[in-house]
Amino acid sequence: MTDVRRRLTAAILAFGSLAFVSVLAAPLIGTTPISLRRVFDGSIPFADNVDAQIFFIARLPRALAGAAVGATLAAAGVVFQALLRNPLATPFTLGVSAGAALGAMLAITLRLHLSLWGVSAVTAASFIGSLGAVAIVYAMARARHRGFSTNILLLAGVTLNAFFSALILFVQYLADSAEALRTMRWLMGDLDIAGYGPLLAALPLCAVAFVAFAWLPRPLNLLSLDTDAAASRGVDVLRVQRVAFFSASMATGAAVSLGGPIGFIGIIVPHLVRLIVGADHRVVLPASALFGAAFLVAADVVARTAMAPVELPVGIITALVGGPFFLWLLVRQR
């Protein structure tokens, strides 16, 4: 067995069991204690089994949403860092989350209360907003060159982030306080989803992105050398950049419309994983997805229980952990 195969197997086993345990354990923890044995006790009918109802109806969707969002944001973070050849990039660097936030906020402020197949107007609007941001940034990156300028991508993304933030503040300023409060809560990131509907809506998008992610790691390794070096080793650079950009952006848009712009997952997780498994994207990407799932589910348990019965938005927890970590990373970089 070669080195990379061994490391890949070890990483998937280790981080996979971490993710599995966290998803299984998270629903057991909360203000009403339940027991895992009673949840899976087949002798009690489901209608009478309160523990099973709490587990499957009230808490499991949230744990699964946390896992899906965490895995998606962490994997997208890996892809964006490789695409931009910048270890400090996050899934939100290119303005995807700002576009999503603007969409969500418009839906909240305009009081769109429709919902379709369990997907609320806010969720749909935020996804549409993220697609808008992706389109603008991509058009910018292509405008000046026949190639695909990652520098312009970065600059356009940062500018778009600032511009959308100003729009958000502007609409918020005009909105009444109840709506402003809802918007604020949305911006903090929250996994308190109602049932499995939103999860099922976001999952196909994430699945498509993960198929692309399965193809990307090897070309991304070569892009870390240099675009020219990658091209001379047989990589179709433009195609890889395009697939990486669109798949990671779409996945980020889906994750953000599900859980809000939960920060720092997309940067802490890839870096922690790299410290453990090295730089090879074939290991880093799947390991980050699994560890991201475990990390966000755990952070959400802390958010739910730290100040119970008050539930904190999970974005506050990840930022409290992630902020100092990010600074440490910056100082550590030479």
Partner: peptide
């Protein structure tokens, strides 16, 4: 095969990993 003037990595690979990239 092409050897550029200088190589700056975005991420920290081992020497063997760099050599293996030639197998792409």
């Amino acid at each position: 095969a092409v050897v550029p003037q200088e190589t700056h990595l975005a991420f920290d690979y081992s020497v063997l990993e760099i050599a293996l990239m030639g197998r792409y």
